[in-house]
Design a protein around this nucleic acid. Sequence first.
DNA 1: ATATATTATAGCACTTGTGCTATATTTAAT
DNA 2: ATTAAATATAGCACAAGTGCTATAATATAT
Lengths: 90, 90
Amino acid sequence: MQKSKKKKRVLIYDEEGLSLLAKRLKEIRAEKGFTQEDLAYESDIALSQIARIETSRINPTVSTIFRIARTLDIPVSELFNFKFQKKQNI
Amino acid sequence: MQKSKKKKRVLIYDEEGLSLLAKRLKEIRAEKGFTQEDLAYESDIALSQIARIETSRINPTVSTIFRIARTLDIPVSELFNFKFQKKQNI
DNA sequence: ATATATTATAGCACTTGTGCTATATTTAAT
DNA sequence: ATTAAATATAGCACAAGTGCTATAATATAT
């Protein structure tokens, strides 16, 4: 390589998983009759953050998901109750 | 307040959930016969990161967990197959 | 006991998650 | 059609996740 293109570090971002999680959260939240604002308020999570998760625009931490699960009063595994279809692209 | 003590922002950190996840990962990884290094290498995740997760010293993102689940060839929900005992302390 | 393998810690740089606030967009009610 | 409610976006500051590298501590073999 002539100009040693500085390799930009790519962090982990699992698009498929994130959008499946988003979908699952939207579903369950609706079932439970929570608005995003309800969930945000009762979980003490920013409303913008809830929206970001449900539109899979961020890669939340597990603690955020834990807190959501606690508020919705469901096992965490419920939110991850899906199957990957694709091979992961790193 | 005299000196308006600037309130430090406290981010979400679910200790109980994180240590349950750590335990679950350790178990499953052992069952599958992976060392931390195996898992790190095959998942393309830093070894130090795997260790940090298994000692619950960090709060990983869901994509990291997704990638681990993919490598271990298990449903993500397997890693979250536990129940909270405590009320969350915010 | 002593190598060897495995796991745990540490520090740094870089990237990104999160909270906050405000605003725009979409959806639902009337 | 208007209004109101709900959801989506945006930008900033700050905290923290991640990769990398090196080293320490612990467990396992021999």
